[in-house]
């Protein structure tokens, strides 16, 4: 479980996060939604120490992450994976080498064992045939799947997804979310997902948190969110949900 308490962050005098409070339950999927530029990625980057807050606490495994040294963060980052929006694959390495990288760095396994694990991870994301390709030869969806395989390599307990489906067509978006849910269940992961996709969020998640003007204005199950009376949440949902999409959400 991750608990965020009163998290504040400013850039050049502009306060992006104004006191975020959020509990991310273990083994569940939490969607963070909100308008573009409201600080969702900023919030996520605090959970892995890529940004440090001006004020506030982040609790994970009985430790306040905001007080950790860079060395202590290295241990935490083996447990909290982060999937970058564009994948952030190393473009000088093949897909296979990308996935092997964290294993070579940390797992201390013999070469054959690493090879086997890489094949397993790439099979899990349906990308074994692209093992020897370079990231520049992959499509957007394939890059995200390769990045997911690399993130899974260290067997994290939590994975943070920064807009995992941006730039993909609806069918691919759906398949990426199916994949995320598959690996979530397979590896028993806690997932935190930033997304603008309301129908998919309502369909896939356990809880949804709405970030607006630097604070979480509402948090709840998809059912609670659907019936929300908060003006911002209502507006966001009404703008995003078309009839067809609502039906998708009801299926869940």
């Amino acid at each position: 479980m991750i608990t965020i308490k009163n998290l504040k962050k400013s850039f050049n005098g502009f306060q992006v996060l104004r006191g975020v409070n959020l509990v991310i339950p273990e083994g569940k999927t939490t969607f963070i939604m909100g308008q573009s530029g409201t600080g969702k990625s900023v919030l996520l980057k605090h959970l892995v120490g890529l940004l440090s807050p001006d004020e506030g606490e982040i609790w994970f495994e009985n430790r306040d992450l905001t007080k950790l040294s860079e060395k202590e963060w290295q241990e935490v980052r083996k447990k909290i994976g982060y999937l970058f929006q564009e994948g952030a694959l190393f473009d000088s390495m093949t897909v296979g080498e990308n996935v092997a990288f964290p294993l070579i760095e940390h797992a201390k396994l013999p070469e054959k064992e690493i090879e086997r694990e890489v094949d397993e991870l790439l099979s899990a994301v349906g990308l074994l045939e692209a093992k020897d390709k370079y990231p520049s030869e992959l499509s957007g969806g394939m890059r995200k799947r390769a990045a997911l395989a690399r993130t899974l390599a260290l067997h994290p307990q939590v994975i943070l997804f920064d807009e995992p489906t941006t730039g993909l067509d609806p069918i691919l978006q759906r398949s990426i979310f199916d994949l995320i849910m598959e690996v979530k269940n397979h590896f028993n992961l806690t997932c935190v997902i930033i997304s603008h996709d309301v129908p998919l969020a309502l369909h896939y998640t356990d809880q949804i948190a709405f970030l607006h003007e630097g604070v979480i204005v509402q948090i709840g199950s998809p059912e609670e969110i659907k019936n929300s009376n908060h003006p911002f949440v209502r507006n966001f949902l009404d703008s995003a949900l078309i009839d067809g999409a609502k039906e998708v959400s009801h299926e869940g």
Binding site: L50, F84, P102, H106, T151, L154
Partner: peptide
């Protein structure tokens, strides 16, 4: 392209 952050994220 966030590859430096990705290195950090892989400890």
């Amino acid at each position: 392209t966030e590859q430096i952050d990705a290195l950090k994220m892989m400890a």
